[in-house]
Design a protein around this nucleic acid. Structure first.
Lengths: 340, 340
DNA sequence: CTGAAAGCGCTTACAG
DNA sequence: CTGAAAGCGCTTACAG
């Protein structure tokens, strides 16, 4: 495999000059540069990133820590990150983090602790203090997208406001008995995404003078089957039922829609449903939702990382100092005026 | 940051001995090894993979090339690969490959061409000859999971057999007018997944003496909205319609189910639907499907890569020499006897 | 079983 | 603008 010495010889220059010509660092005569480039192209030379890293201390590689790959939101974020990183000439090393256990510890204590990545992006992960500390100790910049813990740059939507907005939309339509399909752990961990959305729901209900019964707030895994099962339980028993549901994610909402259909509940006449995410299937399901833009969020996270690493435009202000990420209520046919 | 010299000094040995103790290569007295390990733990030493790679030529890093992250099948494969690689102490570098264009060329000609990965796993990608050649030139082992092109180790289900099996299931139930929701490009590229499944469908129909009208085979993007739109078109017009649909993926099938519901077609009395994949939502939708096991497939691909790299058990036979990956027909309520 | 030395493939002060 | 030399942090023959 061609090394830089080969290029240098072919171009009739020293390795130092060849390096300067190829990396663009330092002065090289225009003509020399061309000769070197031609030589490199001729023998298909590509610098060994490992050797370069060893001396520069930069790997051009960012670690991404993410709890799921197969949930729409996370997949979109990952794609956004990947594209932005590739464009910037960076590699993406993927760590699919489980909730806990030895595998998780291994990621932080071994994989991320080595000098293989320049920075890490944590997507929707609730970081323990010692995990953040491990990164700090190695002086690895950390950018968090959602999730909790970590003190460094954080990008996040305002999940409490999201919950509030969705709920207010239903209240506006005249609904008074509104149920909430929350993510698992919402009440136990008020600082998590699911916790904040639940909080927003409760706030909006309270402000309107309603006090939801505990039975109308059910927690479940944030997937379509999770929403399905929870909605079956919520709507399936006899007696009066809620006229509207705020689901903490679109996938939950899809499950609720499916459950309502199964139960023969007329949609949206007898039941309005609103979700969160702007899932690519939302339009097909005619689902009203509070959209967020995960692909864009991923790209933003990369922007912050790049700035932290001193790439691109100098010293732009970091988003973490600023406003929450954008969201938008999109009204479709799944929500309508309360039955009277 | 601690280097191996620090460990050596602290343990009172040479760098060579420290290295041997830590990597496990070469002889080291048991007591010396313990001293070195203690020293390393004390100062939190972790070897720089870049420096090690430079001399061993091994990066302990595998590149994964995949066209989507946010389609169920691909996400599952990716998770399976990630877990297996992590267990083996390998990093996963992710390349989310677009169909074509400069980004795609850059992945093969720059990112994958450097000495950063030991091998590459291509998931469901149709490799061009020059792409395979680029990898070959760099002597990078290549393992293909599905997709086409590439001559190296290939793992694959028998997609023609899958199409045949699904179709025969419907024929057995007495259906005679069966439509096929195919993936885009199925007729143009007979060697692709979608092409082979279509082929299997046609074979089974032909063997049963049926000749599907061209209007009953429609191609669309392999997603739920794609299936929805295609099924609307297929089932929505007046006149007699098919009594069964073979969808080339579960996501397509879900879309078809949704379309049927929208059109007021009684399920499964008036329409049977069978899919392919064993999607995690299949059970919720009561969908009959030909299951495959993408997580397991990903793990198998890693197994092959590891063997190619000389890790683990020596010289096991490569699956590429052998049988197709397992699939299984799972019958649920979405298919039933043809209406009479 | 252990150490001194060379070298993996680069980049970067330092001279010139 | 260019080159000779040192060095990034490891591992691995080679001696002993």
């Amino acid at each position: 495999m061609a090394a830089i010495g080969d290029v240098a010889r072919l171009a009739g220059v020293s390795k130092a000059t060849a390096s300067r010509a190829l990396t663009g660092n330092g002065y090289v005569a225009e003509e020399t540069r061309r000769r070197v480039e031609t030589a490199a192209a001729e023998i298909g030379y590509i610098a060994s990133p490992d050797a370069a890293s060893l001396v520069t201390g930069r790997t051009k590689n960012v670690g991404v820590v993410i709890p799921f790959v197969n949930r729409w939101f996370f997949g979109e974020v990952l794609e956004g990150i990947e594209r932005a990183l590739l464009t910037a000439g960076y590699d993406l090393t993927l760590y699919n983090l489980s909730d806990s256990g030895p595998d998780r510890a291994r990621v932080f204590e071994f994989f991320l602790a080595r000098k293989r990545v320049d920075a890490v992006i944590a997507v929707g992960v609730d970081l323990a203090e010692h995990e953040v500390a491990a990164l700090d100790r190695r002086e690895k910049p950390l950018v968090c997208l959602g999730g909790t813990g970590g003190t460094a740059a954080r990008l996040s939507v305002d999940d409490r406001a999201v919950g509030q907005l969705a709920t207010e939309h239903l209240l506006h339509l005249g609904h008074t008995r509104i149920a909430h399909l929350a993510g698992a752990g919402a009440s136990e961990r008020p600082d998590t995404v699911q916790g904040l959305r639940r909080h927003g729901f409760l706030d909006a209900m309270g402000a309107a003078g309603h006090d939801p019964s505990p039975a109308d707030v059910v927690e479940t895994e944030m997937t379509m089957p999770g929403g399905y099962r929870a909605a079956l339980q919520l709507l399936g028993h006899p007696g009066p039922r809620p006229t509207a549901v705020f689901a903490a994610s679109d996938e939950l909402a899809f499950g609720a829609l499916r459950a309502a259909e199964r139960l023969g509940i007329a949609m949206p006449a007898e039941l309005s449903v609103v979700g969160v995410d702007g899932h690519e299937y939302a339009e097909m399901f005619d689902l009203t939702t509070v959209e967020q833009y995960p692909g864009e969020q991923g790209r933003s996270a990369v922007g912050v990382v790049l700035r932290l690493l001193g790439e691109g435009a100098v010293a732009d202000p970091l988003p973490d100092s600023g406003a929450p990420l954008p969201t938008r209520l999109v009204v479709r046919a799944s929500t309508t005026a309360a039955p009277r």
